[in-house]
């Protein structure tokens, strides 16, 4: 159990490092090119993993709905947007804002899919997330707000 908790935490940190690296690349060559590199390198890496695992077979490829292929489209846009804002907002703020957008839209997506209103706890969760974003927009009261640029 502890091992899997550690793995999941590590996974979040890997996601963060991927976005940090793409952010650096985006600052040099632009967000869309950074997104292109991310997808090409990721594709090659996953090709190697699939070759090692040898699991290529898909049961009923004809049954896959067209919308299942839309993930790549949103992924390409997401990596571009996230790479663009990452160096501009800083790692923590970028992570916090992306998570907020992701969580709040997850509530709406599930609402759309299940056609039943989100639970009270989920609605409260949205309010608490929004409170966090509001706090992040408040000017800093403390004096050490300047960015150390070394």
């Amino acid at each position: 159990m502890i091992l899997f908790i550690f793995l999941a935490l590590l996974n979040g940190m890997l996601i963060g490092s991927s976005r940090a690296i793409n952010g650096q690349l985006s600052a040099k060559i632009g967000p869309f090119k950074a997104s292109l590199w991310n997808h090409i390198i990721g594709f090659i890496f996953l090709t190697l993993i699939l070759i090692v695992m040898g699991q290529w077979q898909v049961d009923n490829p004809a049954d896959i709905p067209f919308s299942a292929y839309l993930g790549g489209f949103f992924g390409a846009l997401f990596v571009a947007v996230s790479s663009y804002v990452f160096p501009r907002l800083g790692a923590m703020n970028a992570a916090i804002l992306v998570i907020s957008g992701q969580m709040i839209s997850a509530v709406f997506i599930d609402w759309q899919n299940t056609d039943s209103l989100p639970s009270l706890l989920r609605c409260l969760g949205v309010i608490v997330v929004l409170l966090g974003i509001y706090l992040s927009r408040l000017p800093n009261i403390s004096k050490n707000k300047e960015i150390t640029n070394d």
């Binding site: 299942a68 839309l70 949103f74 804002v85 957008g101 992701q102 709040i104 839209s105 997506i109 927009r137």
Partner: peptide
């Protein structure tokens, strides 16, 4: 700041599909 939140929306859609 708004772009980052929009990024989160794109991410949720990506994960969904």
């Amino acid at each position: 700041w708004l772009l980052a939140i929009a990024g989160g929306v794109l991410l949720a859609l990506m994960i969904e599909y």
